[in-house]
């Protein structure tokens, strides 16, 4: 199966995300924000980082990239999986590909630490590293078609303890924690595998 990681100007988790996908068994391309041909990819990943410096708001400027329009088209074909990690999740929300928005953390500070998560009755630990990760949705009923990744100990004031969500109908997942970091680095554990295994299962 073939995956791509989008390197927006300012993305900074592209290399390790690509390495993780390789380890998970994908062929991986790194493409930039101007790419519009996503035909050959089963999995499209928006990695973490600070696209356009996050200067107006996190992920705000990236949504105007040609690759975002291409992703919207690709979703309609229902043959692929879209994953947004951290800044990637922020971009997906800003582009209205996922519901909700991400606000500044409740303590107004960047938070870098390990958090306990629960997804589909599985518990696991992944690191977070963000300043704007407080998930907001005006009405929880809007997420009835989504599986939720939840914090066990809400670190940033996210509504309903939401760390990430999976839109089952469109096969789009966004999450603030970084699965790629706890997967390829020695001594960091392999909990990130839970996310990559789930994606492979969904793509079967």
């Amino acid at each position: 199966m073939k995956a791509c990681v989008i390197n927006f100007l300012g993305s900074n988790c592209v290399d390790e995300t690509a390495q993780s996908l390789l380890k998970a068994g994908f062929f991986v391309d790194i493409i930039n924000q101007n790419e519009t041909n996503l035909e050959r990819y089963n999995l499209i990943v928006l990695s973490g980082g600070f696209s356009w410096g996050d200067y107006v708001s996190c992920g705000r400027i990236a949504k105007f990239s040609p690759v975002i329009s291409a992703i919207k088209e690709k979703i309609k074909q229902k043959n692929s999986f879209i994953l947004g990690i951290c800044n990637g999740f922020q971009i997906l929300c800003e582009a209205n590909i996922l519901l909700g928005a991400l606000l500044e953390n409740e303590n107004q500070k960047f938070i870098s630490r390990d958090v306990d998560l629960i997804f589909k009755n599985k518990t696991f630990k992944l690191p977070i590293a963000h300043h704007q990760g407080r998930y907001y949705i005006d009405d929880i009923d809007k997420l009835k078609d989504c599986d939720l990744i939840k914090y066990q100990n809400n670190p940033n004031g996210s509504y309903y303890d939401i760390a990430g969500l999976y839109d089952k109908k469109n096969k789009v997942m966004g999450l603030m924690p970084h699965p790629e970091r706890n997967y390829i680095t020695p001594f960091k554990g392999e909990d990130g595998k839970i996310i990559f295994d789930f994606i492979k299962e969904e793509l079967k």
């Binding site: 900074n12 390790e16 960047f110 870098s112 960091k188």
Partner: peptide, 18 residues
């Protein structure tokens, strides 16, 4: 102090100040 610094970006950090 150190929880405000990304300690793992680039995926190379085996152990950090955590």
């Amino acid at each position: 102090i150190y929880s405000q610094f990304d300690q793992e970006v680039q995926g190379r950090t085996s152990f950090s100040q955590k």
